[in-house]
Simulated assay, not measured.
Amino acid sequence: MLKLTCGEFDEFEEALYGVQGRYVLKSRQQRDWRLRVLDLGGVAVMAGREGAGTVYHGVGLSGYFNLFLPITGHDMTAVDGNRFNRRTVGWMIPGAMFHIDAARPASWMTIAMSCELVLRWAAAHEDEFDASLLKKNLVIRSAAGTTALSWLVRRLFRQELNAPEELHADAAQDAARRELLEAVFALLLPVESRQVLRPKGYVDYARVLRLALELIDSVSHAPLYTEDLCSATGASERTLRNIFNSHLGISPHRYLMGHRLRVIHAALKQAPPGETVTNVCARFGVWDLGRFARQYRDYFGVLPSTALRGALNKPES
């Protein structure tokens, strides 16, 4: 993770990720400029604290979409003349100019996402994705609110500080990246897309559910995601959500969380000598081991470390 404290804005300006531009100071500098950047491979989170009131004239780099979210000074911040509040986010597309006006020193967060990942997400959610997000800069009032995204980003920064090896294990980093994208697009999806709507054309719900459950039952060695179920069944994510909620009373995401708990439990109970909880969990996409341990204990009544010790201390037959 990049952590930068600058006495002047020039170094701060050069370190910004996913955009390119120039600051113009609107007020006397009042504090240091601070920047943290967490790179998850195709998705990067920046948390910035500016030292003065500014106008930033920028352009999104060709390979990245950007989400912009003020943390402080919402009512004193505007993008392209659009004033913010606590439910408002800015969306910047590659290659388009934008102007951020902060009348006083502000703190903010941005998430830079590669075009490849955004387009892949859009394809998987084509029946609810707003195509205008791919065409122009927007300032959007989110019906969902920004609290969940802000909390997730704080968890990611904390994990990077305390246990970076857990966060950046291949499967764990992929899971963190997916979770962050889901949180971003939860802010951007139109309100009507969250309603249970009848999909276009005929969909054999029983067949889709059967194929999804067969895939889940057959995979016990790697993480599974809702996107994998969509690929296996040919159903969109919204259709899959409707089917799972209608037939099982639970979303695909929640069902997969339970599946992950069970396969990790089995892996811990069968662990060979020298295995660790961290290694097992990382293989299944766990990036926040402390949070997962609490979920595991709620589900099985013991901590993962206790389950592993029981397996390693089991006498050979």
Rank of each mutant, 00 (worst) to 15 (best):
T88W: 04
K200C: 04
L180W: 01
I264D: 05
K135H: 14
D101S: 09
A163P: 01
Q270M: 11
Y56A: 02
K200M: 07
F98E: 03
A232M: 07
A172R: 01
C281Y: 01
L61S: 09
A175N: 08
V79W: 00
V263N: 02
A96N: 13
T72E: 06
V286D: 05
A176I: 00
H99A: 11
V286K: 04
V139N: 08
M92T: 14
N66M: 09
I71Q: 13
R155F: 03
L187P: 00
L188T: 01
V263E: 01
T276P: 02
L25A: 15
F84E: 06
A163M: 07
G41Y: 05
L149A: 03
E166I: 12
H221K: 12
E128G: 06
M109Y: 00
L189F: 10
E116G: 13
A143F: 12
E14Q: 15
A112F: 10
G51S: 02
E14K: 15
Q159S: 14
S142T: 05
K269G: 09
R31H: 10
G21L: 02
C281S: 08
V196P: 04
R297I: 06
Q30A: 15
K3Y: 08
R86S: 14
G63M: 07
L38P: 04
L211C: 06
N162R: 14
I140D: 08
V118T: 04
S150N: 14
Q270T: 11
N279M: 11
C6I: 07
G249D: 07
G301M: 09
A212N: 05
Q29S: 09
R262G: 02
A123M: 06
